[in-house]
Simulated assay, not measured.
Amino acid sequence: MAVQAIIFYLLAGIVVLSAACTILARNPVHSVLWLVLAFFNAAGLFVMMGAEFLAMILAIVYVGAVAVLFLFVVMMLDIDFAQLRAGFARYLPFGLLVGTVLLAELVLVVGAWQFGDLAPTLRSAPVTAAAGMTNTEALGSLIYTRYVYIFQAAGMVLLVAMIGAIVLTHRQRKGVRRQNVSEQVARQPDEVVELVQVPVGQGVDVK
């Protein structure tokens, strides 16, 4: 138990430190790298809890796709971060107010979860796993039966986020020729190919 406690506090401490560095880092690329470190250590916490499937999803999906997408978007978008920070002092009181409200809500939720009379009932699994069913099988059975519509809605949210990232990075540039797929598909061979009968011994003038 002592070894497990040491590993838990080590991973949890790194998660908290990485999350703080993600917010406080001045370079957005460094923020994404700190976020990746937080994801990896959170996956380690899931492994300690016996949720190996969630740990794998966190490492593969969030680190391999979402965090890399964040990194490419940050690198491709020509964002003037100096201009974004210009209004920081003006909106600081409002931001502190919103943060205080969110913190109070989190404290109330955690307090009700920890000290409420129904806490053991709330912590129990929504669906009792069948005998011999692994953690991954139980989770899949729960997602694709009771919470299938919520799962599909989450997929739609991710799809909209992906389309938004593509739209943000797909900007017009002067002096760059763009491909028109519909024009290329609609072209006929006689419009682009010309057969010229060249007499023997004579060349063709290049226009």
Score class of each variant (00 low, 15 high):
L108V: 04
V109W: 03
H170G: 12
A112P: 00
V61K: 12
G44P: 01
G175Q: 01
A125H: 10
G132V: 03
R178Q: 08
A67V: 12
G50Y: 00
F72R: 10
V73L: 14
I166K: 13
G116Y: 13
A89G: 13
R85I: 09
L96M: 04
G87D: 15
G87E: 15
F53Y: 15
I79N: 00
M1A: 11
V15W: 01
A119Y: 00
V198P: 00
N41H: 11
Q152N: 06
L97I: 12
L159I: 03
G164P: 02
F151Y: 07
A55E: 04
M49H: 07
E191K: 06
A104M: 07
T128N: 15
G132T: 00
K207V: 11
A119E: 00
L54S: 14
A154R: 10
M156L: 14
V109C: 01
V176D: 05
V181H: 03
P93Q: 02
S31N: 07
F151V: 15
N27C: 13
N27L: 04
I79W: 06
F53A: 11
Q184F: 09
G44F: 04
L96P: 01
Y149S: 14
V109F: 03
G64F: 15
A55I: 09
G201S: 01
V196R: 11
T100M: 06
L168P: 01
H30Q: 11
W34A: 12
W34S: 11
M156F: 09
K174Y: 10
L92V: 07
V61R: 10
Y144C: 08
L35M: 12
V176K: 03
L92C: 03
A89S: 15
K174T: 06
V110T: 13
Q179E: 09
A67N: 06
G87R: 13
F72I: 13
V68N: 08
A38C: 09
M56A: 15
V63Y: 07
V196N: 04
L142W: 00
R171Y: 05
M162F: 13
D117R: 11
R26S: 11
Y91A: 12
P93A: 07
M162V: 06
L35V: 09
K174V: 03
E137P: 01
E52R: 13
F115V: 00
P126W: 15
I14D: 06
R171A: 06
A20K: 09
V29K: 10
G201Q: 02
L106N: 14
V107S: 05
A125Q: 07
E52N: 10
L45H: 02
S31Q: 08
M56L: 15
R187D: 04
V66F: 07
F39E: 07
R26M: 05
M48C: 05
G50E: 03
P199A: 06
I60K: 02
A19H: 05
M156T: 09
T134L: 15
A25W: 05
L168H: 01
A12C: 10
Y62F: 02
L122D: 00
L108H: 09
D117L: 04
T136K: 10
V185A: 02
Y9K: 09
A112L: 08
L71I: 12
V3K: 09
C21T: 13
L54Q: 08
D78H: 12
L24M: 13
A119R: 00
V68S: 08
C21P: 00
E137Q: 14
I57A: 11
A25V: 03
R187T: 11
